[in-house]
Amino acid sequence: MPDAFVARSLEEIRFWSRIMKEHSLFLRLGFRCEDTTLINEANQFYSIFENIENRANQFTAGTDPNVIRKFNEEVHNAVSHIWVFKRMILQLILTCQLPGANNFPLLVDHTSREANYFRNRLAELNAGRLDPLPDAIINENVFFLRIMADHAKFISHLLDPSERKLVDQANEFSHDFDQLLYQAVDLDSMRPQSQTLPMLDQFLDQNRVSVVALRDFKKTARDLIEACRIKSIIHPLLADHVYREAEHFLEIIDMFELSLTGKKN
Rank of each mutant, 00 (worst) to 15 (best):
L94E: 15
N120K: 14
A56E: 07
G128V: 08
D254N: 14
Q91F: 09
N207Q: 14
I13N: 07
Q193D: 09
Y243E: 07
H151E: 06
H23P: 06
W83Y: 15
L133V: 15
L133E: 14
R32C: 09
I52S: 11
A4I: 12
N54S: 12
E140M: 09
T60M: 03
L180P: 05
P65S: 02
L260G: 07
R14V: 04
A246L: 03
K231R: 15
F256H: 15
A56M: 07
L250T: 03
E74N: 10
N126T: 14
Q195E: 14
D150H: 11
S174F: 13
F49Q: 04
D150Y: 11
F173Y: 11
L158K: 08
I234L: 13
C96S: 04
K153P: 00
F249W: 01
L130G: 06
A42N: 02
N77D: 15
R229W: 12
P198M: 03
L250S: 00
L224I: 04
G100T: 03
Q91G: 12
L90H: 11
H76L: 12
L204W: 08
D188M: 13
T37A: 12
K218E: 04
N126Y: 14
S232Y: 09
S162C: 12
G100A: 02
I48M: 03
T111P: 00
T220R: 09
E251V: 02
I230W: 02
D205E: 14
F203D: 08
F118R: 05
L224Q: 14
D188E: 15
D3F: 09
D178W: 05
E114P: 02
